[in-house]
């Protein structure tokens, strides 16, 4: 479920927790790998991914949102 944090790359800086407009990381502790408390509230704005200095965050787009194409 979005977002996915690569624990090996994460330096626990907390930027993603700070900026997420939806606060999907609510309840995360300082200096710890963030927890994703409200994954279903992610808007896929990718603020966390854009602002992570370690490129440790990727979004998994949920299946209900998959693009249709031919």
């Amino acid at each position: 479920m979005p977002p996915i944090i690569n624990k090996d790359k994460c330096t626990r800086c907390g930027i993603c927790v700070k900026v997420c407009p939806q606060d999907v990381f609510f309840g995360s502790k300082e200096k710890a790998v963030p927890i994703v408390s409200y994954p279903e509230e992610c808007w896929h704005c990718n603020a966390c991914g854009l602002d992570c200095p370690e490129e440790a965050i990727s979004l998994r787009v949920p299946l209900p949102q998959m693009l249709l194409y031919r």
């Binding site: 896929h44 704005c45 990718n46 991914g49 854009l50 990727s58 979004l59 787009v61 949102q65 998959m66 693009l67 249709l68 194409y69 031919r70």
Partner: peptide, 23 residues
């Protein structure tokens, strides 16, 4: 425009707008 998540999704799904019309 702020559509990086959409672009990443297209990339990971192999959707190439030069070939694939998107509904």
């Amino acid at each position: 425009e702020g559509n990086t998540a959409l672009l990443n999704h297209m990339k990971s799904e192999g959707i190439d707008v030069r070939k694939n019309p998107v509904e």
